[in-house]
Amino acid sequence: MLWVDKYRPKTLDKVTVHDQVAQNLRKLVKMENKTWKIDTGTRTLELELVMLSSAHHVEMNPSDAGFQDRYVVQEVIKEMAKNRPIDAKGKRAFKVLVLNEVDKLSREAQHSLRRTMEKYSASCRLILCCNSSSKVTEAVRSRCLNVRVNAPSEDQIVQVLEFIGKKENLVLPAGFAARIATQSNRNLRRAILFFETCKVQQYPFTSNQVAPPLDWEQYVCEIAADIMKEQSPKRLYAVRQKFYELLVNCIPPQSILKKLLAELLKKLDSDLKHEICHWAAHYEHKMRLGSKAIFHLEAFVAKFMSIYKEFLVSTFG
């Protein structure tokens, strides 16, 4: 079992990172199950809450169903509401439905979610998880209790890593955990995965060991280097093939664009940075509107090349 799963807190008491949030939620659980919405900060542990309250819960990612998501939401909730469990004391209990990635649901699905939520609120409770609440419609938000869970700070990540290290009987050299924490970019899951990878790769840890970078991120780095080196339609075409490679592996184009931007920003002059980040935002927006991500990715790269070339020409003649 992955460490990520193994050390996932099973009850609210064991939640270490967001103890404040956890405490409040515990109060809530004691009192009543109500529709909660958990806005997570980006990509953190959010699922502790799942394990806690009752055995009667279902978890799902309705957005995977693609354009059918509306029906999934409706049907599942209906289904659950029908067979309401009866607990030991003969009292009617709630079912809890955890919906992940609510922000990726289509508008229709969110709309139908809100109707369904109201209709079956007697028999089931929803926990909605999402990365950012701005993409959840106001209507759904106002029907929920909003709880923001921020990403753990680096110190907290270090603590968690050390905790895991202790449990696994590992010796951590000084600064090792901190380095992983930095590398993980305030993402605890990634930190733990990095940690485990390091363990698999080499143990005992050496003092300057770093986790291998994610393969797709490395690939994006290569692309960044490519387009810094030469700016021509031919190179653009070559880059396109690399993008294809990434897309086939289901890497979300948004992630590609962001990573690419991050890489480029590392190497650029500050004037250019403004310009590039503007165009990145522009094309990411277009990407949402359009249907073929590659068109927009490529447009971004082409724009970058064009700007960068102009910059080079004007600076070095």
């Binding site: 701005s134 664009l257 980040c277 935002a281 990411e284």
Partner: peptide, 17 residues
């Protein structure tokens, strides 16, 4: 852009820049 579902990070960065 945010209403259209654009990425929050990129938009905010754009605003900042």
């Amino acid at each position: 852009c945010l209403v259209d579902g654009a990425d929050e990070y990129l938009q905010l960065l754009d605003v900042a820049s």
